[in-house]
Amino acid sequence: MDETIESITEQLLTEIRIVTGGRITPDPARSLADNGINSMGFMELLVFIEQKWGVSLVDQGMSARDVADIRALAARILEGIRRA
């Protein structure tokens, strides 16, 4: 199935719920930090992204813009998928 920003966003939201122990309902328009993600949670998310889409953001590097909100992160993943 071809991924879109929307489909990736949905899967990220589900994973963020898991990473944060279901404490919050993540909002795609808010930053990762505002969605309860800290540095350990972010690592969990990066592991999920590599396992799910084969995109290693640790190797490719990221900027603050890429985590401005969950949709921005989804767009960055989609870019990584297309680049591969």
């Binding site: 990762l32 800290n38 900027s63 985590v67």
Partner: peptide, 11 residues
């Protein structure tokens, strides 16, 4: 830390 290592990479 964010500038040099990336977001959430303080550790």
């Amino acid at each position: 830390a964010e500038r040099e290592a990336g977001p959430f990479m303080g550790i």
